[in-house]
């Protein structure tokens, strides 16, 4: 099934010249003594899918909701289509559509009723409701109550409500969290279709595969700061090493853990293997990053033979966004 295939698109003006529909400058949010968004700057270009990728608590939701005008920035500003989110909020609301991370709808209304209700909130012309819901694969649920929808159907309804007034910019906050793989793929297709229809999409996620598949550009966030911002391909190739070799050592064997006294010595010697650029130890696995996979692998096996180490779970893979994140922050993107 050829779903969720991103078609490579040329931006109309190309590269950094493309028009910025969202402009974020020095955006800051504090809660009590904590600064949870720390003066970030970025632009979102018209017509792109802009992915905010980061672990839970990175500040993705806070950032999006400051742009949507739902939270007041303590410093800095955001502009959408030229309108300031604080002083021209009414204008901003007409051009954006949002799907909030934590939202529920009136359970006892039908899909059609709630869509019609949301459509009535806008002064601008809205799209015909039935074709809209059909395009969200809810055509057979028009008269079904919201309560009886599945998780994926609810998310698709939330997206329908976000685009009922044909907004220029759509904000999707973790739209696939908690969905099964099938429902995620369906949703990805919908998001890509919206982009192809010309909408600008700001999407947050903590799934790197989702960001890689959907986003034209990824803004990697951690602890309220932007760690990196580029296309997925550029982010990954920015890693000097392009492949990773992972393996485990049996417990009890020397250097089974990073805190083992001999671990440091082991790491030093692993680093001397041909082609190895960097070494990580995480989740009980050793990871060697290399720009010469075959030579490093041969070297590793020779080294293991020589030292009498029994390598288990040996595997190689290409570097991922996860590796980029670890390199930038020293921490894993996934939840522990």
């Amino acid at each position: 099934m050829e779903t969720a295939q991103k078609t490579e698109r040329q931006h109309p003006v190309g590269g950094s010249e493309a028009e910025a529909i969202i402009e974020v400058r020095g955006l800051t949010k504090r809660y009590g003594g904590d600064t949870v968004v720390k003066g970030i700057d970025f632009d979102v270009k018209r017509g792109e899918i802009f992915g905010l990728l980061g672990p839970n608590g990175a500040g993705k939701t806070t950032t999006m909701e400051m742009i949507e005008g739902l939270r007041r920035p303590d410093d800095g500003y955001a502009r959408v289509a030229g309108y300031d989110t604080r002083s021209q909020l009414a204008k901003v609301k007409e051009v954006i559509g949002v799907q909030l991370q934590a939202t529920s709808l009136f359970d006892l209304l039908t899909v059609r009723e709630i869509t019609r209700m949301y459509a009535s909130f806008y002064n601008t012309p809205t799209v015909p409701i039935e074709p809209l819901l059909e395009s969200m694969i809810l055509g057979d649920k028009l008269n079904g109550r919201v309560k009886h929808l599945s998780g994926g159907q609810k998310q698709r309804l939330a997206i329908a409500l976000a685009i009922v007034h044909s907004p220029q910019v759509v904000f999707l906050d973790e739209p696939t969290t908690g969905l099964d793989p099938q429902a995620r793929r369906t949703l990805w297709d919908i998001v890509l279709r919206l982009r192809d229809e010309g909408k600008t999409i700001v999407l947050s996620t903590h799934y790197m595969d989702e960001a890689r598949i959907l986003a034209d550009r990824i803004c990697l966030m951690d602890q309220g700061k932007i760690v990196a911002l580029d296309t997925p391909a550029n982010l990954i190739s920015s890693l000097a090493s392009e492949s990773a070799i992972e393996f485990r050592l049996p417990a009890g064997d020397h250097a089974a853990g990073a805190d083992h006294p001999s671990a440091e010595r082991l790491a030093e010697r692993l680093e001397t293997i041909d082609g190895v650029r960097r070494i990580e130890f995480r989740k009980e696995s050793w990871v060697l990053y290399t720009d010469a996979l075959q030579r490093s692998l041969t070297g590793l096996i020779a080294f293991a033979e020589q030292e009498g180490l029994a390598l288990t779970d040996l595997q190689t893979r290409t570097a991922t966004l996860e590796d980029v994140f670890i390199q930038m922050t020293g921490r894993s993107l996934r939840e522990e």
């Binding site: 739902l70 009414a90 954006i96 949002v98 909030l100 709808l105 806008y122 002064n123």
Partner: peptide, 13 residues
Amino acid sequence: ERGILRRMQSTPL
């Protein structure tokens, strides 16, 4: 609590 009002707040209502 359920975010229903927030969702409405993000519209011109």
